[in-house]
Design a protein around this nucleic acid. Structure first.
Length: 104
DNA sequence: TGGGTGACTAAGT
DNA sequence: CACTTAGCCACCC
């Protein structure tokens, strides 16, 4: 119950905040950006502290937005003209190959 | 300190 | 391309 590892959380939020509109990153990319492989840890941090960061710019490696937040994410994607990709089944997902962004 | 959970990933089917 | 299996690391209690 003590405060979570602020060190890790702070870096995750910092990276996500640096993602410009119209771009996106996968959880693994964010983890790698902070020197870790904890993609799941990133997801947990986002779920808990993501309320203050553009979490919709962080998607899974497959391009799917966070589960149960797809509708909300889609609204942001349309508003920010984020590169989207439509699969044969009609599943909307972020076109990571194009929208993928990495912190300088 | 230790156990359970997850807004994940990569590989295989 | 979509679903399933196993592996990983950090978070929370």
């Amino acid at each position: 119950m003590t405060e979570p590892n602020e060190d890790f959380v702070s870096r995750v939020l910092a990276v996500v905040e640096e993602i410009p509109a119209g771009r996106a990153m996968s959880y693994g990319d964010v983890a790698a950006a902070i020197g870790s492989r904890a993609a799941r840890g990133v997801g947990q941090v986002m779920a808990y502290y993501g309320g203050d960061v553009p979490w919709w710019r962080v998607v899974r490696a497959s391009g799917h937005p966070a589960l149960n937040h797809e509708r909300q994410a889609l609204e942001y994607y349309r508003a920010e003209s984020t590169p989207l990709k439509l699969s044969t089944t009609g599943v909307i997902r972020v076109d990571l190959p194009i929208a993928r962004w990495s912190p300088s």
